[in-house]
């Protein structure tokens, strides 16, 4: 039994350095940075298996992106700076969270307009009842 324990410990020790380096699949030691990195990975689209976020993709390129995200965040970059960097490479398509700019303005304005139109319609309807 003890031999088995030593054996397992030795195997774990031997295995650790192999993946301790690879930030594609290993968390950052700082939990705050790791949660920032994870949130970003959830909103970056895998360019290989499209429609999946890179956090849940097995594609090697998705792993490469996760590694770069963790490295940059560990180095002090903000998640939005890393997102901007990825958009500068692959375009708006790569983010699940649309950026605010002239081309995407309708995305933000239309719901507001729809709400206003709804309020107007309802208030008119209520107005008739009162009269």
């Amino acid at each position: 039994m003890r031999i088995l324990k030593i054996l397992i410990a030795a195997m774990l020790l031997g295995a650790a350095p192999a993946w301790a380096q690879d930030l594609a699949d290993i968390s950052l030691s700082d939990p705050k940075q790791e949660s920032q990195a994870l949130a970003l990975m959830d909103s970056i689209r895998c360019v290989v298996c499209q429609g999946q976020p890179i956090s849940g993709s097995n594609a090697e390129l998705a792993g490469d992106m996760r590694r770069i995200i963790r490295e940059r965040i560990a180095a002090g970059d903000t998640p939005e700076a890393v997102r901007t960097m990825l958009i500068s490479k692959y375009g708006d398509w790569v983010t699940f969270r649309p950026q605010l700019k002239p081309a995407t303005l309708p995305l933000w304005i239309i719901p507001l307009l729809a709400l206003l139109a709804g309020v107007w319609l309802v208030s008119r309807r209520l107005g008739w009842r009162q009269n």
């Binding site: 360019v47 290989v48 090697e60 390129l61 792993g63 490469d64 992106m65 590694r67 770069i68 990825l86 500068s88 490479k89 692959y90």
Partner: peptide
């Protein structure tokens, strides 16, 4: 190594 050049180029495949 690690897709660094590929991502820098914006290459997807």
């Amino acid at each position: 190594q690690g897709g660094r050049a590929q991502i820098a180029l914006g290459s997807a495949g």
